[in-house]
Amino acid sequence: MHAVITVIGKDAVGILAKVSAICAEKNANVIEVTQNVMHDMFAMIMLVDISTLSVDFSELSRLLTALGDQLGLSIHVMHEDIFDSMHRI
């Protein structure tokens, strides 16, 4: 079971570290990361394994959204299935 974490917003020091710290704390294994900085805008997409998550998926989502609010970034956590079903036949 995988989830996709997206982070979009103004670039700053330590975004990747803070997001991955929450993932590590809740036992979500980071599998893949793509990251771009264009004109000061930071965009990161992270694929994480959530099969051994130590909390509910909704709790992880809540924590990351709260981090996003705190840093002024837009952070979304969504189950991989949704992207698979919408974009793959």
Binding site: V4, T6, T34, A43, L47, H76, I82, F83, M86, H87
Partner: peptide, 15 residues
């Protein structure tokens, strides 16, 4: 991994 553009498109659709 799923295409980054597809991911952003889905998020934009919802947001």
């Amino acid at each position: 991994m799923i295409n980054a553009r597809d991911i952003l498109e889905t998020i934009q659709m919802i947001q």
